[in-house]
Design a protein around this nucleic acid. Structure first.
Length: 936
DNA sequence: AAGATCACG
DNA sequence: GACGTACGTGATCTTC
């Protein structure tokens, strides 16, 4: 006995069940997805392993000895799904068909049997591999025992255990005893998670060390909880400790690998209708190797030249099958399959990242993970590149264009599927595909989005692009766009990519999307994020599609006039600046400007920054200008105009869509760490408003003739949310009384009467209020108000004395973030914050401020998203034709027919104000005007 | 690609 | 006692 494989059969079943679609059925209707996943995985293991003893171990009944210790243990687990129950017996059958022993025992969990056999094997000097990813088995790792996560194809040794628990395998049970486990109902100690538990165990050695030293722990809450709940921790330790001496019936020796009866195996595979597995086993001429320890091998003539005992004959089992669809018949077959399954992953290939100007090039579909197709629709022949474009490559067969279904015909076939309310379409950033296809008359619904699901689950932890998600969740490197389309100057649009390359790339996108969906969707429910996803994010997708399609009208003539005006004034300023400097230089270069100011002209003021360059930010230049220096003042003027010209007037003119004559932004749903949207291409969330010059640009955003722009913005929404979530009585009263909140703060903090208040005093209070939302620091406030840090410190102190509830709210928020790694908004959105426990005080401080800000900023984002979801229906129901065009964090812009102005105004205000019910009223200010500036 | 700067909430 | 910070974005330009 050299190497023993202990396979966690029960773990396998559940993972396979959730990873694979329940549309996998035998002809008799029995769902066999878990059986298939289990069988495929074990066959693959058999082909790869050098083990001489193998067992598959299962749970038997729900009641085990742990229920006697603690009746709640695993008590709240929902019963197994109906379509999974019949599969338990089939999996045992599969095990036997593969020539392996299936083991279980009344009163014990599979984990206990695994622990017992692992100990016995070690005593006989054998190596042990536990095939499972269950964290409860990690306590067994080390000293000749490793775990293997078969689905991720990853070995788990002591290092991986440490990564997971923050302690070595020998202390895993101590950490679990403290942290508990909500999925198994192991109580642990309330408020202590894995992170804290590991820290405690590392400090005091083991559980008893922690409990006997509990009274010395500094954090008062933690100390109390530990002392109160010591018994819970001891019970938890009993629950998580695996029993290593189960009186097993089947001796370890019985697990020696024997010849599987191939006929039995083939019969079983046939009965389950596993065609691909059957074909692989049969076609390879599977037979019995007899080289001492071989399990499954290839008969002579199977794979010539491959040593039978090591031939991975069943590799690659999960090989992907991609099909190029070039005929209507083939397309019809895919559509029928998707129709039957009720679920299909969809992806479109186009000529551009801009959904409003992209031309459709092809569509890919995936119904079953591992099988996908690509339907090319507008690919051109090799000669097309650089040649003359006839406009509609799909209908006019360009020279050498490949065989494709005509675009129009393919869309006719796809439309019923993509619009079928009974078929769920899954995409990765499907808003893009929806916008593109809507321009071709296809309105995809209903939809799910893996990018958005990932964002709801893990916002702030990482990006949510497909490449990153595939790497993270599937341990898979996707083909990069650059690899098929080239890079730099040689890059081509997708319609010029060869079909074989296009197939690999495009079909993979649909396949990966489906795999991600299988993996991520169940987590929404198990992690209680379904409501956030469904009501806040998923419902918003079609709303944003509509907004992006609408766009907004801009006055190109006016923008051009502005641009010319700016150009002229920039020219004049440039001459003036160069004259003052005594030499020409690039005013846009901070480096050159710094050298002119501080070296050549000898103005006192220092270097800064890691790069060694002089700082020349607006604050610095303003300081110099105030000292009477002419050049910095002119540079500030120049910068303002240069910014407005390049970023706004010129860029906006270029962004006007040729078809619609309007400007269409794109909203990013998974870009921010707080739940806000972001806008790009162009960014319409940062159109100037604060300066007089800048407002001229805003005036160029206009309504169609007979229409008016309507702007509705939430008044003080973040401070209102703060008053609500931190439960601050004075603030809530002030909002109920509709007081000037900054003046009220000034009066409270500085003790001055509201009547005849000095505007400067109010300004200071306003800065404090904003600072609070940002996670105030004396340094930040001092800089904002240009006062000393001491003075800023005094203000903050005075503020917290008047509003002790805010201090408590901030401390609680930081503590929650430090414990869990995330904070939540009022509506349940999670915002993860990294670095909250970092040793570096600066990094930590940054995270703490982000943690304080996120629930407020994110809560406001939730509220406006709710309003946006409700508004289209409310408008339609009221018979109003107003179109929602833009969102700017706390503001919505509509284009309204003049005749409906009053009714729309009333309705929009009402819907937005009732988007949430807080302890304070939500107030929306509405303005109207011929342009966006006047609407404010 | 990174950094500086500046437009917005 | 020193460090060096207000929160969240995107676009443009220069520099490397």
């Amino acid at each position: 006995m050299k190497h023993v494989f202990l396979i966690d059969g029960s773990g396998f079943i559940f993972r396979a069940y959730h990873a694979l679609p329940d549309s996998m059925k035998r002809p008799d209707g029995t769902v066999v997805n878990a059986v298939y996943g289990f069988t495929a995985m074990v066959l693959k293991l058999l082909a790869d392993t050098d083990a001489d003893h193998i067992a598959v171990i299962f749970d038997r009944a729900r009641k085990t000895f742990r229920s006697d210790i603690y009746p709640e243990y695993k008590a709240h687990r929902p019963p197994a799904p109906d379509d999974l129950i019949p599969q338990f017996e089939l999996v045992r059958e599969a095990t036997r068909a593969m020539g392996l022993k299936a083991v279980d025992m009344e009163g014990y969990e599979a984990d206990d049997l695994i622990a017992t056999y692992a100990r016995q094997a070690r005593e006989k000097g054998a190596q042990v591999t536990i095939v499972s990813s269950d964290k409860d088995l990690m306590q067994l790792v080390g000293d000749g025992v490793v775990m293997m996560d078969a689905m991720k194809n990853r070995m788990i040794g002591p290092d991986e255990v440490f990564e997971k628990f923050g302690v070595g395998p020998d202390r895993v049970i101590d950490v679990q005893a403290l942290a508990g486990d909500s999925s198994d109902n192991v109580p642990g100690v309330a408020g202590i998670g894995v992170k804290t538990a590991a820290e405690l165990i590392n400090t005091f050695g083991d559980l008893e060390g922690v409990l006997s030293n509990a009274h010395t722990i500094k954090q008062p809450k933690r100390r109390e909880k530990l002392m109160e709940q010591a018994d819970n921790a001891r019970i938890s330790k009993q629950l998580v400790t695996l029993c290593q001496d189960v009186p097993v019936d089947v001796p370890l020796d019985d697990f020696d690998v024997v010849r599987p009866d191939v006929n039995l195996l083939l019969a079983f595979l046939k009965e389950q209708d596993f065609k691909s597995l059957f074909a692989k086993v049969a076609a390879l001429g599977l037979s019995i190797g007899d080289n001492g320890n071989a399990k499954v091998s290839v008969a002579s003539g199977g794979l010539s030249g491959v040593p039978p005992s090591v031939a991975p004959i069943l590799e690659p089992l999960p090989a992907v099958q991609f099909e190029l669809v070039q005929s209507e018949a083939a397309l019809a077959a895919w559509i029928a399959e998707a129709q039957d399954a009720g679920l299909v992953a969809v992806d479109t290939e186009t000529t551009s990242l801009n959904a409003m100007s992209a031309a459709l090039v092809g569509v890919s579909l995936c119904v079953t993970p591992g099988r996908a197709c690509y339907i090319p629709l507008a690919h051109k022949g090799p000669q097309a590149q650089g040649g003359f474009d006839f406009g509609d490559g799909a209908d006019s067969p360009a020279q050498g264009a490949p065989e494709q279904i005509p675009l129009k015909r393919a869309l006719e076939l796809l439309k019923p599927l993509l619009e079928n309310p009974g078929v769920l379409k899954v995409g990765q950033n499907i808003k893009y595909d929806m916008v593109v296809l809507s321009r071709y008359g296809v309105n995809i619904a209903p939809v799910d989005d893996t990018m958005v699901i990932s964002y709801v689950l893990e916002c702030g932890q990482h990006g949510h692009g497909m490449d990153e998600l595939a790497r993270l969740h599937l341990d898979y490197e996707t083909i990069k766009f650059k690899d098929v389309a080239g890079t730099g100057k040689a890059q081509v649009t997708f319609d010029l990519v060869d079909l074989d390359k296009a197939l690999d790339y495009a079909a993979e996108d649909a396949d990966v999307t489906m795999k991600l969906y299988k993996r991520l969707k169940p987590r929404l429910a198990s992690e209680h994020m379904n409501t956030v996803y469904e009501t806040l994010e998923r419902a918003l997708i079609p709303v944003l599609v509509q907004m992006e399609r609408e766009g907004i009208k801009v006055d190109a003539t006016e923008l051009k006039r502005l641009s010319d005006d700016f150009a002229k004034r920039l020219g004049d300023l440039e001459i003036e600046i160069h004259t003052i400097a005594g030499e020409p230089f690039n005013i846009a270069s901070p480096k050159q400007l710094g050298e002119i100011l501080f070296d050549k002209m000898g103005i006192q003021g220092g270097k800064k920054g890691k790069t060694g360059a002089y700082a020349t930010g607006a604050d610095i230049l303003e300081g110099l200008a105030a000292e009477g220096h002419e050049l910095p003042a002119r540079v500030l003027d120049w910068r303002q105009l240069a910014k407005l010209k390049s970023t706004y007037t010129d860029a906006l003119i270029n962004q006007i869509n040729a078809d619609t004559k309007r400007v269409h932004t794109s909203y990013s749903m998974a870009g921010t760490s707080t739940g806000r949207l972001a806008s790009s291409d162009p960014n319409l969330q940062n159109i100037p408003i604060r300066s007089e010059e800048g407002r001229k640009i805003r005036k160029a955003f206009i309504a169609e003739p007979g229409h008016t722009l309507l702007s509705a913005d939430y008044s003080q929404i973040e401070l209102r949310l703060l008053a609500h979530v931190a439960d601050i009585e004075q603030l809530k009263k002030a909002f109920h009384a509709d007081l000037d909140i900054h003046a009220m703060t000034a009066s409270e903090v500085f003790g001055v009467p509201l009547e005849g208040m000095d505007p400067m005093v109010r300004r200071r209070a306003k800065a404090i209020n904003f600072g609070i939302i940002y996670g105030i620091s004396a340094f930040g406030l001092a800089r904002q108000l240009d006062i000393s840090r001491g003075e800023a410190s005094d203000y903050i102190k005075a503020y917290f004395e008047r509003f002790p509830g805010i201090q408590k709210y901030m401390d609680d928020t930081k503590a929650f973030a430090a414990e869990h790694g995330y904070v939540t908004t009022l509506f349940g959105r999670k915002c993860h914050v990294g670095g909250i426990n970092d040793k570096n005080p600066m990094v930590r401080g940054f995270s703490e401020r982000a943690a304080i800000n996120a629930p407020i900023q994110g809560g406001a984002a939730d509220i406006i998203k709710r309003a946006m979801v409700h508004l289209p229906g409310a408008l339609a129901e009221a018979g109003l034709s107003a179109r929602m065009l833009l969102q700017v964090h706390d503001e919505l812009i509509f284009e309204v027919s003049d005749s409906e102005l009053d009714a729309t105004r009333t309705l929009v205000k009402a819907v937005m104000e009732s988007a949430a019910t807080l302890d304070v009223p939500l107030v929306v200010d509405v303005g109207i005007g011929a342009n966006w500036d006047d609407a404010h």
